[in-house]
Design a protein around this nucleic acid. Sequence first.
DNA 1: TTGTATGCGTTATCAA
DNA 2: TTGATAACGCATACAA
Lengths: 335, 335
Amino acid sequence: MAQGPTITTIAARAGVSIASVSRVLNGLPTREDTVRKVMAAADELGYVPNAVARSLKSNRTHQVAFAMADIGNPTYVAMVREVQPVLKTAGYRLVLHSTGGDVDDEVDVLRRLGERYADGLIISPLRGITGKHLDLLTAAPAPTVVIGSIPEGTPVDNVRTDSRAGVRLALEHLYGLGRRSIGFLNGPLDTVPGAARDAAYADALDGLGLPYDPDLVEVGDFYRAEGAEAARRLLERSRPDAILCANDLIALGALDVLRAERLRVPEDVALVGMDDTELATAAWPTLTSVGLGSAERGRRAAELLLDRLDNGVAEPRIVTVEPTLAVRASTEGAA
Amino acid sequence: MAQGPTITTIAARAGVSIASVSRVLNGLPTREDTVRKVMAAADELGYVPNAVARSLKSNRTHQVAFAMADIGNPTYVAMVREVQPVLKTAGYRLVLHSTGGDVDDEVDVLRRLGERYADGLIISPLRGITGKHLDLLTAAPAPTVVIGSIPEGTPVDNVRTDSRAGVRLALEHLYGLGRRSIGFLNGPLDTVPGAARDAAYADALDGLGLPYDPDLVEVGDFYRAEGAEAARRLLERSRPDAILCANDLIALGALDVLRAERLRVPEDVALVGMDDTELATAAWPTLTSVGLGSAERGRRAAELLLDRLDNGVAEPRIVTVEPTLAVRASTEGAA
DNA sequence: TTGTATGCGTTATCAA
DNA sequence: TTGATAACGCATACAA
């Protein structure tokens, strides 16, 4: 914990100026002899350059911030897991912000980006871009990439998923299996995924020529217990032959309830989750799930950001990641 | 992305010196009139203090680094999830390092701590403290907390779990259920948890007066596919009436194999996982699992570190987190 | 090739 | 109460 040596210490030890030390350490052309003396001194003293001082000069921290709602959520875990190696390879550290999905917290992250502790930001706002976000985003003090939907024309890089297509995949799959009464367990409508999936569900039904029946829709939260509650409420008033859940956790909750009600999955009720997390294959029966490309979204976001950091400005770009459907036992019956 | 205003900008605008600006912004006693002028100027310019410059002066980054093997592993997710709010509340940012369990990577993290980009470090070395770690640890340039076992006498704060007691809990539970042929699916023996759990298993058997039968032990890796492979190998040569797995993922793999072999859980084979992750309740039957207090270890580590950061030096402390046994359907048969 | 001096943005010391 | 100035550790323009 002793005060570490600085280039001044080395300079004294080697009998040269701090400029020479700096030059040697940065590999600039220097006389062989001087190089040796400096390197020797640095070695003996166990010199490690001070990142903070370097940052102050260079205006680069070699840090990238990543702000998400909850690092416990498998979706975000998948993102972080992909973001991390991309950044690391490029020489950036990852600073994590867990906002709890709180708008003020998210806004705070944006504002504090002005403190310049990071060179760039990846942010995935759970409750969407509000007016508060917008001003800060358009005048962001550092390159920013938003994962999730943003209002048209917002001048930032954006990686989004096509949840509409994802929901359609699920419903078409269920329709193809002969299911006609397809329930929907959603998360809060004031969240980005909640609102998007709600609209997509109505849309997909329409595309299949099925009516939208409010009795088949329940809103809870994106967690297992709340998913179970919602499922219970749903089953009290209707008996669908399939249920789409807005994420895998909700689907696990639904599975608990269906089991308790002695309803067989998929024979009586086919079940589909979303996000295609590890939980989907841990469940029994294994869970058919719509993959929304969390991992890929994370990776693409990191790449966009790095590109901008390295190559400077460019037009804002929008990347859309296509959804996939992982068909498993909860809809097809096989193990 | 414009160059942000500095205290110099504000000073000019308000017609005072940078010293006055600094005083106002830091809440030091200043004349009412000056305060107003400075605040007004700062507001209009949208001033945000530069964290890097501040750090250079104060020698404090308000960042804490957390190094772990893999941010995808539920154990580490649980830790991060607890560490984050503790740090945030105390005003620290979290810098994440995912080392892949690579010793050189871990050593690199320790070394680069000398760059002073963080005020402290929490590290959870998967393969244990090697000689390479030791030197750097004892002379760490910033307060460090190690999660996991460390050699006696290593002068750093340490949060450990009592995996010996954890394994004992599991085996006593199984013994109490009448199981006498208890298999063990472990992870690599050159990892800390692997080695510890191996010794603990032998120990616990001994305590119960059961013989150690090498045919009942298999080593794979801490993942599902490898767990399944290990289970397959184990079942090829013996038929235990219970299996302890070194983590939940291995247990899931074992569950897959038992199911394929038409062996009923728990009637034919009782199954116990370790770490008590979310996966344990997602599985079917739900999985009895030994909780090793990942969340609590994370929280305690963060608290230890903060205490040291705030209150300076103190004797190295060792915190041991007690294991718990979550009994579920995979051993007791109930839903 | 090397050294002196300056600035990055802040805090803090010292006179005024 | 305020302003001029030094200092944090490093990189660099410029002079020698």
